[in-house]
Design a binder for these strands. Structure first.
Length: 561
DNA sequence: TATTGGTTGCGGAA
DNA sequence: TTCCGCAACCAATA
């Protein structure tokens, strides 16, 4: 928290001269793991800087590491190695420390005689990042170090949207698009510096080489790493990390496909692809800032202009996807503005309706491990575990299933699981989408419910996707691939699978539970309406209306192997 | 107060 | 393939 006395004395000796000293800078990478369109590193690579220390701090408490799986940790390591390699080409290198930035930064500033600190702002108000940055800035300024922060995570700075919004920030995509239109042109992305000021210190602080070099998450009081034993070579991430890979992916998926880009409509892309994905899969790079949103914006524009096809428009177009991203950052920022960081939770979150979710750890675990007995749901959860990614509509299906659709478990638990597993885990986007899917905020049509059977049957009638991620079912006839419990025993035998033994029976009856849950949602909404209209007097409300389902309540099938 | 629109539902009928 | 009923949500707009 505080400068140590020896380091403070060293620092005072180094900086007390009245002559103007040359600038010695640290650029502190947190997200924004790139050199192109990175205003902080571009600023500190200018001529007036005599020494530059590009620095990353492996902080076990930050959103990017705290709960991450081996897959995500490995992705981060790849990003850091790539950054180090690119810096070395320009005569520099990445310095990597491990621990609490609030303690580490002052020590390094003293050791290196630093006069200027730059970093990319976190504009979402994520509680840990907010507190960390406030403390770092306070300590640095107390010691006379100039701190310069840059807003480069979104197309326009979040504060620009706020200033154009008047009394309240928009809470629908339509109104956000109105604000976006008033802000003006997206700034052009800046090129990466070619040369960097040198750093003196060549000893140690090397970039991590493998995921287990990161400060691993610990399991409560247990000292064992949760994922440390897993070998990264066994993992099959959907993409590999790093700015270089990000730019290659951008070129391959956007620059080289004008018609795909021009006509892109997100809701029409398919989640069941097993080879070439139907979307760009740039999101993992966006989440750690390997790719600048402004770089992506103009790559889309340039590519699209080379096609003569009729062009799709926001919100469904590729530009629209970047607008959603900025909109979500703005909303997360607003949710955290006057609260103690309530975005990402139900309690105290002004965008989240109170819903009385159940708390059944066993059901949650079954969902996490892909043992629900619904192959389409389970296959998605397996892909998440193996590749760190699922198509957007696959996420819809499993999120709906966990919350309002079938299992009636809190979206917070689902969001936590996504946060730890998704390569593209993003504080703002993850929260927004879980509110949406659980009908807790922004989207309220709870009677529109995804069927774990029908939703993808039309796109993938033979269940190629399911066969890939649930190989135990790979020989089932297509007729039963979405509903294997309906397969006669002889068919199961033929396919080499016994439902109830090798693969579970459905854990709930979707037809029944989804109807039940709709009436629970209706009741929760009614209570909310009452409580916001007449204070908190809800005494006159009756219980949830009886379900109109003609199905008999089924006992939960929890006894599968 | 009524109307309209909301990135991405399902299932059956025509 | 498109359209409707389903039971009917919310927020913004006129």
């Amino acid at each position: 928290m505080y400068w140590t006395l020896p380091s403070l004395a060293l620092f005072l000796m180094a900086s007390s001269t009245t002559l103007k000293k040359p600038t010695v800078a640290i650029h502190w990478f947190r997200k924004g793991l790139r050199l192109h369109d990175n205003p902080g590193i571009i600023h500190s690579s200018r001529e007036a800087v005599s020494k530059l220390y590009p620095l990353y701090i492996m902080d076990g408490e930050c959103y990017q590491i705290k709960h991450c799986t081996a897959l995500r940790a490995n992705f981060l390591v790849e990003c850091l190695q790539d950054l180090d390699g690119s810096l070395r080409k320009g005569g520099s290198r990445l310095h990597v420390a491990k621990g609490d930035p609030v303690e580490i930064l002052p020590k390094l500033c003293a050791k290196w005689g630093v006069t200027e600190l730059t970093f990319e702002e976190d504009e979402t108000g994520e509680p840990y990042a907010k507190q960390r940055d406030e403390q770092v800035i306070e300590e640095a300024e107390r010691c006379g170090i100039t701190v310069k922060t840059f807003a480069s995570e979104t197309l326009h700075p979040v504060k620009t949207y706020v200033s154009k919004s008047g009394s309240a920030v928009p809470n629908t995509m339509g109104s956000f698009q109105g604000i976006f239109g008033k802000v003006g042109k997206v700034p052009l992305p800046q090129d990466a510096p070619i040369h960097f000021p040198p750093a003196d210190d060549q000893d140690g602080m090397d970039a991590p080489k493998k995921a287990t070099d990161l400060p691993w998450p610990r399991n409560g009081s247990c000292e064992e790493p949760v994922w440390g034993a897993k070998e990264c070579k066994d993992l099959t991430p959907i993409v590999r990390g790093g700015e270089s890979k990000a730019l290659k992916q951008l070129h391959k998926k956007v620059t080289q496909r004008p018609t795909f880009v021009a006509t892109y409509e997100k809701p029409k892309t398919l989640p069941v692809a097993t080879e070439e994905m139907s979307t760009t899969v740039l999101s993992p790079y966006m989440s750690l800032g390997c790719l600048s949103p402004r770089k992506m914006w103009y790559a889309i524009e340039d590519s699209s202009e080379r096609s003569s096809a009729p062009k799709s428009k926001p919100p469904v177009s590729l530009h629209g996807q970047l607008l959603w991203r900025d909109f979500n950052h703005l909303i997360a920022h607003a949710a955290n503005k006057n609260e103690a960081g309530s975005w990402g939770q139900m309690e105290g979150n002004k965008y989240c309706r109170p819903i009385p979710w159940s708390n059944d750890p066993e059901l949650l675990q079954v969902w996490k491990e892909g043992r629900t007995g619904y192959p389409w749901i389970d296959a998605c959860m397996k892909q998440l575990e193996q590749e760190g990614w699922i198509h957007h509509l696959g996420r819809h299906a499993v999120a709906c299933f966990l919350t309002r659709g079938d299992l009636w478990q809190s979206w917070e638990k689902g969001a936590e699981h996504f946060e730890s597993h998704l390569l593209d885990a993003d504080y703002a986007l993850n929260g927004y989408n879980w509110l949406w899917l659980s009908c807790s905020g922004f989207f309220y049509q709870f009677f529109r419910c995804y069927s774990p059977i029908a939703f993808q049957k039309k796109n993938d009638p033979n269940g190629h996707y399911i066969r890939k991620y649930l190989p135990i079912l790979k020989d089932l006839p297509s007729k039963y691939i979405y509903e294997p419990w309906k397969a006669p025993i002889a068919v199961q035998k033929q396919a080499g699978v016994r439902i109830g033994q090798d693969y579970p029976k459905p854990i709930v009856d979707h037809a029944f539970e989804s109807k039940e849950n709709m009436s629970k949602m209706k009741y929760a909404y009614d209570l909310f309406k009452e409580s916001t209209k007449n204070g908190n007097d809800v005494s006159k409300k009756r219980g949830p209306s009886k379900s109109k389902s003609k199905y008999k309540k089924q006992k939960k099938l929890t006894d599968f192997q």
